Amino acid sequence: LVRYRTISKIPQITLNFVDLKGDPFLASPTSDREIIAPKIKERTHNVTEKVTQVLSLGADVLPEYKLQAPRIHRWTILHYSPFKAVWDWLILLLVIYTAVFTPYSAAFLLKETEEGPPATECGYACQPLAVVDLIVDIMFIVDILINFRTTYVNANEEVVSHPGRIAVHYFKGWFLIDMVAAIPFDLLIFGSGSEELIGLLKTARLLRLVRVARKLDRYSEYGAAVLFLLMCTFALIAHWLACIWYAIGNMEQPHMDSRIGWLHNLGDQIGKPYNSSGLGGPSIKDKYVTALYFTFSSLTSVGFGNVSPNTNSEKIFSICVMLIGSLMYASIFGNVSAIIQRLYSGTARYHTQMLRVREFIRFHQIPNPLRQRLEEYFQHAWSYTNGIDMNAVLKGFPECLQADICLHLNRSLLQHCKPFRGATKGCLRALAMKFKTTHAPPGDTLVHAGDLLTALYFISRGSIEILRGDVVVAILGKNDIFGEPLNLYARPGKSNGDVRALTYCDLHKIHR
């Protein structure tokens, strides 16, 4: 019993810090008490220290592992850092350059016999395009090294910054494609005289377009951006097909006994025919423009016929181009109408809503002055909100995010209106959640004399007048207030005048 009563005193000691020596009952000389009392004092002292730490809000209350900052290894790049964003855009520009100039170089340097010394005699450094290609190869190699040090988000939505895990993730992902696209074939085969082989191998750079397509997928929600990307894709495919079309004609031209190829026909049409040795002929500019003209006309199913396939190889390629053109029509131009419709969806919704308003007016036989006010209010409210119901949009977000959005939407009023000066951010967040926005066209009466005042109004834009009878008592403008002081009276009061809008007004109100 003594032991039980001794232990039962522990909660009292913990909360009230009572010393055991003052209790005459606990001072009985028993061996059990002498053993338990020192333990009680020690526990009391420890609990006292913990309570003191909690009340003082000291940093040592938290466990040590929670006080440590997340460790980022040296030379690790955050995937959302500004440097990584700028670097990704730079790589994107280099990939676009590669997609345009690599097929052009591979096709127009394929057994090209233009006048001038061969590239091997001039030297590697004197070729501007080769120098640019070398810079692109170096940048792609540097990009691989950067990807080995860039964080990523795993399946659990955690940012991984450990170098080993980053390397394994990159090896399992895009490393092989990036490595093949970054191989400097110019340096590996330079001086061997195989410019045709170098041009063909350099087309491996186009593998990076797969990554670019995935990154550009984030802009699919913007109709104008999608339309622009589709047109660029169409032009890029036409450019690639033009390079292939020229390569076919250029390879067949020296081996044909009869002059029936499209390059021969082009030379005869523009007065620059090929001679018996295969030299001469149109310039590279004429060849490229004509090839691009043929691919565009074939892809769009126009086909004027002034550039036509004559050999079997050219006919087979033309059939493939027609098939590609039909697929592009289905996948690209078939979506253009939907994209344009999405661009004008706001206008369509406006006309639909206006039609419903006019049908309501016609069905209920609203008189002319009231009908005009109804239409003007709808037009003004639509121009202010673009038909978007803010309350319906915010309803799907958590309250903390709703408060931040409301604070942002009402920031101008909260910053410049005098009653809100000096208020804490928590108070402003709470008030912003209570605001209701209303609009009024010129001549609209917001409050009639004798109406119950259940709200306090803040003028965000425009001006109003307060009338008693036919006498203008006051004219209020931006950041002015009218209405009933909230919670100042037990019952809502009545208006002693009319409140009429002089201009288009936007008002925020808080109800009782």
Rank of each mutant, 00 (worst) to 15 (best):
K66I: 07
P70K: 07
H73Q: 09
I77T: 03
L78Q: 08
L78F: 13
Y80H: 09
F83M: 06
L92W: 07
Y97N: 01
F108W: 01
K111G: 14
T113M: 03
P117V: 06
C126S: 01
A130E: 07
I135N: 01
I135R: 01
V136E: 01
D137T: 08
I138W: 14
D143V: 01
I144T: 05
I144F: 01
L145C: 08
T150W: 01
N154R: 09
E157G: 11
V159F: 05
S161C: 13
H162G: 09
Y170R: 01
I177N: 01
D178K: 01
A182V: 10
P184D: 01
F185L: 09
G191K: 13
S192Q: 11
S194H: 13
R205I: 01
L207Y: 09
R208H: 11
L209W: 01
R218V: 05
S220E: 05
L227G: 01
L230A: 05
T233E: 04
A238R: 01
A242D: 01
Y246L: 01
N250C: 14
E252M: 01
P254R: 14
D257V: 05
S258V: 09
N265M: 14
D268I: 14
P273S: 03
S277Q: 09
S277H: 09
K285C: 08
D286W: 06
Y288H: 01
T290D: 01
T300C: 15
F304H: 04
N306P: 01
N306V: 01
S308M: 01
S308R: 01
N310V: 04
S313T: 14
E314P: 01
V321L: 13
M322G: 02
A330Q: 07
G334M: 01
A338Y: 09
G346L: 03
T347P: 04
A348H: 06
Y350N: 01
Y350H: 04
H351I: 03
L355Y: 06
L355K: 08
R356V: 06
I366W: 01
L370I: 03
Q379C: 05
Q379K: 11
A381V: 10
W382Y: 15
Y384V: 04
T385K: 03
T385E: 12
T385R: 06
N386R: 12
M390G: 05
V393T: 05
A403W: 02
H408R: 03
L409E: 03
K418W: 06
P419T: 09
R421Y: 06
G422F: 15
C427D: 03
R429W: 01
K434D: 01
K436D: 10
T438D: 08
H439R: 11
H439T: 14
A440F: 10
G443T: 01
T445I: 08
L446F: 09
L446Y: 02
